[in-house]
């Protein structure tokens, strides 16, 4: 009986609006310099920046710009992101490109 109820409960999201909401959460919204970038689920910093601006992405690859989080800490380009994260791209002076 308990197993049947549990199984039924697991089906609820698939037949109600809850599933719709889950699907809505599949994409991620990341703010880069104040602009929202909508990107696929599981994207990393590098993916977001490529979508944000190809020019900026090239500058980052060359090392003339770097990426920081909302609190000013530098982040790596392969870094994982969560929904609503904020990134700031800034000009920097460095001798080697960002990893």
């Amino acid at each position: 009986m308990i197993a049947q109820v549990t199984y039924f409960l697991t089906l609820i999201p698939y037949f109600t609006k809850i599933n719709f909401l889950i699907k809505e959460f599949k994409d991620m919204h990341i703010k880069v310099n104040g602009k929202t970038v909508e990107i696929f689920s599981g994207a990393c910093v590098r993916d977001v920046l490529r979508k944000y601006s190809q020019i900026t992405w090239t500058q980052i690859q060359k090392g003339s710009k770097a990426v920081f989080d909302g609190r000013g800490h530098e982040v790596g380009l392969e870094g994982g992101l969560s929904e609503g994260a904020r990134l700031i791209v800034k000009r920097v002076v460095r001798t080697e490109p960002q990893p």
Partner: peptide, 11 residues
């Protein structure tokens, strides 16, 4: 870990 954040000094 995970976000590859360089936190220096720790907050």
């Amino acid at each position: 870990g995970h976000s590859h954040t360089r936190v220096d000094p720790a907050e």
